[in-house]
Simulated assay, not measured.
Amino acid sequence: MSAVHAYHGQGGDIFAAHAADGPHNAYTDRPAMLALAGDVAGLRILDAGCGGGHYAAEFVGRGAEVVAVDGSATLVGHARALLGDRAEVQQHDLDTPLDFAGDASFDGVVCALVLHHLTDRARFLGEVRRVLRPGGWFLLSTTHPVSDWRYFGGSYFDESWVEFPQADGLTMRFQRMTLESLVTEVLDAGFVLERLVEPRAVEALRAINPERYVRLTERPSFVALRLRR
């Protein structure tokens, strides 16, 4: 993600641990994104904001060639430890051009729960479109605007930067956006919207954490888009 808002040091360690098997990542957003991707065998995929490498590992396991990048050296370390030599992993600030990638060099791009951390979303979206081949897909997930509104209150149309406390003292800093802003930004970048989903927890979470399962199936937490170049 953005190097400014990435999880560094101990924050990166905590984030990687929660992403591995936490309700929001492992049982809600990640299954939804994998479902949106469909068959990825033989595809070359960029994981933009790879975190601890858990999404990349799933795509590699399904037969894709993956390049994974993140703005945090700590999370790049976790991703390399998880992926080994099965994927190319490097540190890169997503608020800067994707200068490591050529035009039309990927079949798909995944950006999971990262967009709201970026300070130059328009440039990032333009870069994603550049590195995608014609007809390639872009999977994008972010915090649900209604969830943010419920938590922070005030105007739904407030798009200020906020801080959200998480477990173990970790704080997430991100910019709120409306659903209108999200969809308008990706359309203005030249993408075609194929599908919009509001991920709910998968059934497997019910036995592990029934209270969180109910919460994540009754209230929106994330929104995910499948886009086409």
Rank of each mutant, 00 (worst) to 15 (best):
F59Y: 15
D120N: 10
V162F: 02
Y7D: 07
E203P: 04
G63S: 02
T96K: 06
A3D: 00
G84K: 12
G9T: 04
R150P: 00
D95W: 06
A167W: 02
Q91T: 10
V66S: 07
T119F: 00
G84T: 06
V128S: 00
I14H: 07
Y27D: 01
A73V: 10
L118A: 02
M1I: 15
V197F: 10
H8W: 12
D148H: 00
A17R: 12
V114S: 01
R123P: 10
G126L: 04
D13E: 15
F157N: 08
L216F: 14
A64Y: 01
L225R: 05
G136F: 08
T28M: 06
F152K: 05
I208N: 13
R219Y: 09
V110H: 13
T184P: 00
E65A: 04
A26D: 08
D148P: 01
A16S: 08
V40H: 06
F100V: 15
F59N: 11
S105V: 03
I14F: 06
L140M: 12
A167H: 02
A101F: 00
R173V: 13
F100Q: 15
G77R: 07
F191M: 11
D99N: 14
G108I: 01
T96P: 08
T217M: 03
R30T: 00
R212S: 08
